[in-house]
Structure formats: structure tokens, C-alpha cells
Nucleic acid binder design. Sequence first.
DNA 1: GCACAAACGGGGTGGTCCTCCATATCGTAC
DNA 2: GTACGATATGGAGGACCACCCCGTTTGTGC
Lengths: 204, 204
Amino acid sequence: MPPASRTTSPSRPTRADARRNHDRIVTAAADAIAEHGAEASLEEIARRAGVGSATLHRHFPSRQHLLEAVFRGKVEALCATAADLAGHPDPGHALATWLGAVARHAAHNRGLAAALMGGAHDGDPTLGAGCHTMIINAGADLLAHAREAGAARPDVSITDLLTLVNAISLAVEGEPDGAVQAGRLLTLALTGVRPAGDAAERAM
Amino acid sequence: MPPASRTTSPSRPTRADARRNHDRIVTAAADAIAEHGAEASLEEIARRAGVGSATLHRHFPSRQHLLEAVFRGKVEALCATAADLAGHPDPGHALATWLGAVARHAAHNRGLAAALMGGAHDGDPTLGAGCHTMIINAGADLLAHAREAGAARPDVSITDLLTLVNAISLAVEGEPDGAVQAGRLLTLALTGVRPAGDAAERAM
DNA sequence: GCACAAACGGGGTGGTCCTCCATATCGTAC
DNA sequence: GTACGATATGGAGGACCACCCCGTTTGTGC
């Protein structure tokens, strides 16, 4: 982040080769991450993109920045889905559907769960508008509506739910039938282990 | 694994220095893992133990083997807890209590969740009797009893439950109030997001 | 005490992440 | 069309890592 120059002009427009390299790196990263997961080698990504490793590090000072760039599109899609579902007549169902969509995206896009998870708590405030924050804001409305409709406990937060979804996604990542497992576990977590219809309130 | 020698005698008793080094490595690993997590540097562990890195690799051919050795005691304790709880009058409560104990152990012993998680699906059959298997066998009884008592759905497996617990434990690992978060999320997953007493069966 | 299998560990290989800085390139003002 | 300066580049190098080879040391049964 260059210090705001003295003139009103925003320093300079990004150079064309820089923009080109940026895009090539993101593309290469998407491939490598799909293949090897979120911990894919940065050296290899640079190699695939045909740039020096220093260039990669200049464009993306941390792995998290790179993940954010790779998955921004997917995250925006999930946010849009949340917006669509916000007006659904059954808010509880809408929330569950959306969380399922998050899990499905994570199952089909290796590394997405890590990108969603990492955002806030790695001490870098410059990632404020990152995927983590975006997805939380998107889900907050759905949860609020569900709560109003009595379909969600008042003491559960959207952070809880997304942590759960991402934890599940990470746990089954790499498994052959990951998407199925993730769906099972998410349903389990949302509805509880007790048989449906058993309303017993226990001390636990 | 030395090929079974021609004689009936089990080749040879382990040499004293080997046993000593083994123990020093496990101790050093416990410290390092508590400090840096399950991904702690093996070189550093060898350094702390005062042995060459080759010695560490000879004793523990993979990181998973080392984790198993470090946490075997804790896992046995959890298995014993499971055995104690097996006769509890309320099997549903017993199961929940035990899963809570697993989470609590994981929160207090960094790396334990990783040890429990890694066991089966990394292609090494020699880890058959590893922590993963031990804990599954221990929990299976509790789940079976809970199911008989109608306190657990018939379609949920012990693997599901342990995956959930470990996923949660890994997700909150390193967080300042990790133990509290893990407890919250586990309770949430076990009882569902709907308010207690809401027995509505939804299509979802 | 001796012989020998068992265990050891220094040092090498090839990998990672990240940084420095001399060089090449782009965009612009002329 | 050219020259210039800011911007961007990438190879080389440092620090670290997992893992392995192989000459050397050490423990043990006789």
C-alpha cells in the first residue's frame, strides 16, 4: 500500500505486465491448489505461472492473500446465494440450504475451506475485507431471519455455524466421497444426534 | 519390522540405548508439540532429545508414528473413561459426556486431535492398532448403548461423531479460549441448531 | 574380553519460504 | 521516435526442513 501521493491522482495506474503476472499467478495457484490443496508449494505456483518466486511474494505477501485472490469469485457467488435465500419463506430451511451450499462448494474446491477459515485470526488487519468477513456478513442475515422464525437457538452465532461447516469440510478434504461425508456430517450437526421427534431436554 | 528369525526366539531384546533414545525422543516430542502443534519440526525434536535426526527417523518412520507414541497414554485414558461410562444408567448422557471428554483432552493437548484423525486413511496398514482404531473401538460401545436407548439416530456412526469432535478440536486449536469454543460447538453439533423442545421434523 | 549385530549421527540431497538488489520493462513527456 | 524515471522483475542466496546413506560407535551374549 503506497503512501497516498501528494497529488490527488492515485499514484499511478498498475502497469500492464504487473496485472498480467498477477492473473497468471492466480490461475496457476488455482490449478496447484486444486491438485495439492491449500498448502501447495508457492515455488511450484510461481514456476507454473512462469514468474520468479520474488514476483509471487510481491503480489501476494502471504499465502492467505493468494487464497483470497483465488477464491474471491466463489465466495462472491456464495454471498449472492445468501442474498437470494434471504427472502425465502422458510428461514430455517434457507439457512440450512445455504450452509449446505457452502459445504458443497468447499467439497468441490479444495482449499476454499482454508481460505474461509484463515481470514480473521492471523493477526493481519489488512485482510479485513477478506473472504472470512464477506461470508460472515452474508450469513448473518440468514441466521437472523432463522432466529426470528424460531428455527435457530438464540445463543448460536453465525461464526459458530461457519466454523462448524469449515471444520467439517477440512476434515473430509481429500476423502474420496468427501462431498457425501460433508453433507452427512453437516446435517448431523444441524439437527443433532437424537432421533428426529425426540424433544427431550437433557441436562447435558 | 525385522523378519521373524528362524529360531523361535524373537530375534533379540531391544538394546538399552535404543530404548533410552526412544523415550527421550517421545519426551522431547511431547514438549515440542505442546509448544508448536502437531507440525512441530522433527529436526528440533531430535535436537532437543540430543539425538541425530537419523535416529529419530529410524525410531519413528513417519510423523504419525511419533504422534501415536506421544499420545498413546492419553488415548488409553480416554478408552478407560469410555469403559467406565459404558455402564452408566443414561447411555445418551454417557456418550455426550465421553465426547466432551475427548474434546477437552484435545483442547488441553495440542496435537492430540491430529493424532486421532490421521490414523487410518494415510495408507499405512502397520498403524492398524493406532490411536484412531483404539478410540473408535472405545466409542463404539457407548454409541451402541445410546442407540439402543433411543438417544442416538440409527444412521449415525461412531466415526461420524469422532470426526466431528476432532474437526472441531482442530478448528479451534490455537484459539485463546479454545476449550470453551470446542465445548460450545460440540454441544451445538450434538443437540442441533433448533431451539430445545422444537421437535418439528423438517424435510431438510 | 571379544566379536558382531544393532544402533548411532554427521553430512549430503533436494525441497521449502522468503529477501536483496542489479537488471529489464513499461508508460510518458517530449 | 526517443529518452527517461518509476515500476516491476527474477536469479541468487540464506535459513530452514524432511529424509537417507554409510562409516563409526556401542551394547551384549558368549
